[in-house]
Write a protein that binds this DNA or RNA. Structure first.
Lengths: 206, 206
DNA sequence: TGTACATCAGTGAACGCGCGTTCACTGATGTAC
DNA sequence: TGTACATCAGTGAACGCGCGTTCACTGATGTAC
């Protein structure tokens, strides 16, 4: 018997349930990691019987993908609808604003851990890997744009390379953040250093 | 009945078997990822019955830890016994030599993938996490030293912060390397950009 | 050099567990007339 | 406003699977005398 698409409950109640399931899966992913993410635990946490989960998401993969899509869509929205909150400091370049936003998002251990687990999931699910890649590509493009805006003299190719390094750097920081990596170095100092590095990336012509 | 320590077979044959088991586990980790790493598969690959694996490594954890220890010990040796191969170009600073060594190690998809899986394992095994941390700390210290050697004027605190950024950056690159992350940017160009960034990190005083 | 014995290496069957998923079924909610 | 029916939401039991690990046991190899 053909049923409607995964995660697309049609009635209000169903939509709420589907959301609750994704919430549960997200929380579980953060708390227990990808290894602890089982359909049965997700179901239990969402207040649903094991078998019923398949009604909303036919396979475990579908839960993960829906979860990722929802999260990335929100993250993209957040970055796109850059609030005017810091229009106060007109001195901050768009580049700095973007970096700040990312750093803030990373600051919570939750966020860092979540992203970390997504990477791990991507290793086993091509669809997840693709979604992650698409996300990073757009994120990278945004940085390229901001770099060029700040320092047009860089030229696009160089700006692209530097943006890639920046993305790797920010991602690498997540890695050390999600565990106790660089405990001996206070993060605020590290972040200041990072900002100054960003400034130099945006000005030095080599 | 008390038996000798995990992985410490006393006779030559036993030691060879233990090594074979770690080899099998390493290969499996690279090929199938941490999710595919099961004691039964490791045993099969090493030519050993499932139950017999426990004779060498009482628990799965012990395999992983032994595997990590062996690998990190080798990696540390490699970095420490810096071959005189590049004493030819006396112009290359120690810093550049280290960075090169790391980049080369990362270059193989295998190496990148392996390290990547180690991180994933660390998320679930505190002992692994600790070993990884120790490894990165020593790696970081080495970069701090090299930075200070190249540019003493930096001062230790700043050198430490910059070294941390460098480690994060290199690690972040691994992340993108192990999957098709930055396919549109040719790696050689990226690496050149990285080297020039390193140079500027080692000279700019702010 | 040969025998006795301890230790090491390896076997084969079985355990209990959590997992992802299926299936036939029931109850609840909306919709058409 | 009431009834008939389709669709949506939810239940409960069961499936087969691979897993990590245990256990009683046998065979191989080294060591002491």
């Amino acid at each position: 018997m053909m049923r409607h698409r995964p995660g697309t409950a049609v009635l209000a109640k169903g939509r709420r349930r589907a959301e609750a399931i994704l919430d549960a899966a997200t929380a579980l992913l953060i708390e227990e990691g990808h290894a602890g993410l089982s359909t049965r635990k997700v179901a239990a946490r969402a207040g649903v019987r094991p078998g019923h989960l398949q009604y909303y998401f036919p396979a475990k993969q579908d839960v993960v993908r829906a979860l990722l899509e929802r999260y990335l869509a929100r993250a993209t929205d957040d970055l796109t609808a850059q609030p005017a909150s810091d229009s106060s400091s007109a001195s901050a370049s768009r580049l700095e604003t973007i970096i700040d936003a990312i750093l803030v998002a990373q600051r919570s251990a939750e966020g860092a851990r979540f992203f970390w687990e997504l990477w791990a999931l991507a290793a086993r699910d091509p669809a997840v890997a693709e979604a992650m890649q698409a996300f990073y590509r757009s994120y990278w493009r945004r940085i390229v744009g901001a770099l060029l805006e700040t320092a047009p003299a860089l030229g696009r190719p160089r700006a692209e390379r530097r943006a890639a390094l920046l993305v790797a750097l920010l991602e690498g920081l997540t890695l050390f953040r999600s565990r106790g990596g660089t405990r001996e170095l206070p993060l605020p100092l590290l972040e200041r250093e990072l900002r100054s590095l960003v400034r130099s990336l945006a000005t030095t012509l080599d």
